[in-house]
Nucleic acid binder design. Sequence first.
DNA 1: GTATTATCCGAGTGATCACTCGGATTTAAT
DNA 2: ATTAAATCCGAGTGATCACTCGGATAATAC
Lengths: 205, 205
Amino acid sequence: MNPTKDRYNLRKRPSQARSVATVDAILESAARILTGQGYAYASTNTIAEQAGVSIGTLYEYFPGKEAVFGELRRREGFRHYAVLTKEPRPTTPRSMLEHLVTTHIEYVRDNLALYVALETEVPRYAIEDAEQAVLEDYVPLSNAFLAMHRSELRPHNNVEFITEFLMRVMSSTVNDYALRSPTSLSDPQLTDALIDLIGSYLLDN
Amino acid sequence: MNPTKDRYNLRKRPSQARSVATVDAILESAARILTGQGYAYASTNTIAEQAGVSIGTLYEYFPGKEAVFGELRRREGFRHYAVLTKEPRPTTPRSMLEHLVTTHIEYVRDNLALYVALETEVPRYAIEDAEQAVLEDYVPLSNAFLAMHRSELRPHNNVEFITEFLMRVMSSTVNDYALRSPTSLSDPQLTDALIDLIGSYLLDN
DNA sequence: GTATTATCCGAGTGATCACTCGGATTTAAT
DNA sequence: ATTAAATCCGAGTGATCACTCGGATAATAC
């Protein structure tokens, strides 16, 4: 379909354990150079060298530099999603909100260097597919939960819009603090303010 | 002081009308290539060629590619600030909030291609100084205004923190829509939701 | 009108980069 | 044991890029 699409995805999936380890090593090398020196220093030659594999091997699995970071972003997305949906599953909208804000900030703080670098140095077109995937996993999940508790919510004309809106408010605000004032991620005021802001708008009380 | 600082600023200010026009042409060329083809295609050679000046002339005023986009970002920041502070100046917190949200969204929508490209394709280190400058112009202005109307605000422990927090909520949310769902910038629901969200948290009533 | 400064030019340079390809080596299949 | 498939190798290639420099031309100062 889209010919450019292939440039940001794996060229071939590793099947043997040996090649799985190779791909892992390449991604780890890419992450290390990205966080340590920056995207501009992460040439395919350097990534391969630091990973201890030859440049030819890198191109066996990745069509180019962007695909390496696309795959890296994809795997980070899976890790992020796992954190957000980890136990214990909250049972009320209020606890769901608290859980969501707390774990999201926690994930960003714990992976700050890589998170910021992926967000600010890697060209968006290389990673936007991977970003989209996480959102599409999460939004329906959140919508289903809220639908079960509609009576506890403040009435809004367009619940779907408001839900997505608040999700973006939360993630983009945390993103902004991560980029421009990362120490605030450890400030309880930030977590409290976000919960309070969203809670008083979304929840009935 | 910081030796790397010089890499993102003008090397020399144009003094004659001729050279002012030259610098303008370079910046316009950079903006055109950035929005049309992307940052990767905006080499210094190409920027100079499209601007109708020689590569030597470009380096007379800019120490490198990043400085071109740093200056471009700076000028966009000035334009943005001018829009935010344009007449009529609101007199109540509520109208101030409405004015701020409305004009901000309007600016982003009207300059979408350049806004998004600067935000997602140009490396942050090249433009973060310019970004910071606008914020530092605006925050004290907003704080002063709110201090004059404290009685109309909901009581908060830390007004400074809340003000900055809400500013970030607004700008980062609009930013997120600009990048990921740009058509929503014309949806009145977005403006209304932002005003409502922030208003009900900040204002007394 | 002379000197000084500002502006502009563009071929050339050295470095870097993404990517290929022919073939070696290892693993799996039969 | 033989074949087939997967994996790995790395020197080499062509292109691109950021940036310099020596000097030409134009504006300004005196």
